[in-house]
Write a protein that binds this DNA or RNA. Structure first.
Lengths: 344, 344
DNA sequence: GGATGGATTGTTAGCGCTAACAACAAGCTC
DNA sequence: GAGCTTGTTGTTAGCGCTAACAATCCATCC
């Protein structure tokens, strides 16, 4: 692989010799400083391409204290939302000339968060972006005093530090109102994990929409984002329907994966969607449209979130206190919602 | 955020002064060199914690030429497999004291791949791991002469460079044989993108299983990993069933997401699974068990793949030419497969 | 008792780069 | 033409660290 007698990569000084100038002049050309004579600049440029020179990031970082890189701290990168956001983040960071390091938390503890940020700081990253963490990690984030800007993405609004977020409440209200408008007396809710700010935001929006409409607010069922917990919630709701509890005609599920589990449970129990029960999810994962039936859901633009995260970081680095507006979610109506069934 | 008058982080020399030794002794303690008197070591240790010293990665990288970091090049990190593998990779890398940078290719071109690797090289990463890339990118990989070890993960076996891979063919054979054993005369196949090595491997295994059993090998349908293409394939197959083509009783779909689309299309067309058609997927994403019906599929252990990737990299860095064994996939039987329907 | 050798510690140089300043030429003003 | 500015280039120092070597101490051996 590595050709053993490989000549070491050429450095600034090699280019300088090759072009017959001082190393500093080369540095100036590389960094696009003004005040270099066009002829000189051109000569240096040629030497650079001829030698295939690439500046050494470590040396640069050592003297400037900046690596032109961000650290991304996250925990659930195997889920659709965070993964999609990572995509947007990386692309925007790259476009701005920054590279991205990732740290995945083993658990959502404060210690794990602190350790991850510490490692990034030792690596002299220019900023740390915390993506979709929760539990104690997000609490830790709040109090953190790091020697670099620390930006939170997608954890819901947070007064204590710069944040990019999707207006979860708005999305939840959209979903809930959609169901109420179809004539459902109330809407049940399957939550995400209690320590997730996203999950909390969705619950708040759901409750507010019900209260605004004067509808009763049933006790929510609790899930953990995964299909299995949605399945359990579905069985529970089906049992209630069979027990004659006739207000169970509509469910707002806090994400699409749990909605999938719920759909599967309802089907197993012989309930039809949307005939017996209407279901709305959240996220709009690409699979949604192919669920049985295709799922009505709330779309979040995750890639946009990533882009805005980088925007916010860059503004921060320039010292501009940019106030970020929330990304607005949209309702996507498919076939899992319909009019309420007639109660007997 | 950043307390402006922040004192600069303490360096080796600060610790040295604090402990009353030379900076070199501190360096020795930090790097765990032998031949430091226990008492001295302890004194230095204390100074380190008191000052909250953390070694500066850039300075270290400058002199050693190693950053103790890997670069990960990938393109489809928003899909379940790659995301899961990233999880395993990051964890294993961290456990070994390495950090991870990511580069996501905008497209699967050679230029994109080359640029990503170049940037990592300029960052002095110790190794580059290419994850699940395809198209020209994977071709490029083959010919690459990088000044760091370059390891491929999950692109199927490749003689030309160190590779960690899942035995795709074996998984495809498992799936196909399972269907044949249920009495299906042949098995249709929906492929992944033609330039994906994984997709090719699965096709090879499928074909081999059919040939070994003396079954006819139908023309495969082509997909692109996404549910939509599976849906299209499902409609096509349903049309054939309705046209009386009675060998369409079993389908092996190259991934679960396409299988989902296919299930949805079959349901739309009034075909029952597994009554009319049996379906097998590939990957075993967590949603699988909640499809309608729950999907029989082939499980790949992505996290294991990540772990082995790191293992291979580390072996490489130590100069041991470790030969990696493929990760073996497993068949997971659920409810989407059953005996062949009786042909009229 | 002086030579030998291992363990421990310190000194020096330099990785590749940028910042700060110095040096010089060329063009201007009065 | 002295004194100024402006544009261009070079020189020097040092970021924080490790490698290589030098220096010291102390036990051991003949």
């Amino acid at each position: 692989m590595l050709p053993d007698g490989a000549p070491r990569a050429s450095a600034l000084s090699d280019v300088a010799v090759h072009a017959g100038v001082s190393h500093q002049t080369v540095s100036r050309v590389v960094n696009g400083h003004p005040n270099v004579a066009p002829a000189t600049r051109e000569r240096v440029q040629r030497a650079i391409t001829e030698l295939g020179y690439r500046p050494n990031t470590a040396a640069r970082a050592l003297v400037t204290g900046s690596t032109r890189s961000f650290g991304l701290v996250t925990s659930h990168i195997n889920q659709y939302g965070p993964a999609q956001t990572l995509l947007g983040l990386e692309k925007a960071a790259r476009a701005a000339g920054y590279s991205l390091g990732v740290a995945i938390l083993d658990d959502d503890s404060e210690a794990a968060m602190r350790e991850a940020v510490d490692r990034f700081v030792a690596q002299s990253v220019d900023a740390v972006v915390a993506l979709s963490t929760y539990g104690q990690a997000v609490e830790a984030l709040r109090r953190f005093e790091a020697p670099v800007p620390l930006i939170a993405v997608q954890v819901g609004r947070d007064e204590s530090r710069p944040t990019v977020w999707v207006a979860q409440e708005v999305g939840a209200e959209l979903a809930t109102r959609h169901l109420l408008e179809l004539g459902h007396r109330t809407v049940h809710h399957v939550t995400g994990p209690p320590d997730s700010l996203e999950a909390r935001g969705r619950m708040v929006g759901w409750r507010r929409a019900l209260e605004d409409a004067g509808a009763p607010v049933p006790e929510p069922l609790h899930g953990d984002w995964w299909p299995c917990s949605g399945h359990a919630a579905g069985r529970e709701l089906a049992a209630r329907v069979r027990a004659g509890q006739d207000d169970v005609t509509a469910v707002f599920v806090a994400n699409d994966q749990m909605a999938l589990g719920l759909l599967s449970a309802l089907a197993d129990e012989g309930l039809s969607v949307p005939g017996d029960v209407s279901v709305v999810g959240f996220d709009d994962v690409p699979e949604c449209a192919y669920f049985t039936p295709p799922l009505t859901t709330v779309r979040q633009d995750f890639a946009e979130l990533g882009r805005r995260g980088v925007e916010l970081v860059l503004a921060r680095l320039r010292g501009e206190p940019l106030e970020s507006q929330p990304v607005l979610p949209q309702l996507v109506v498919r076939r899992s919602t319909g009019p309420a069934r007639q109660t007997v």
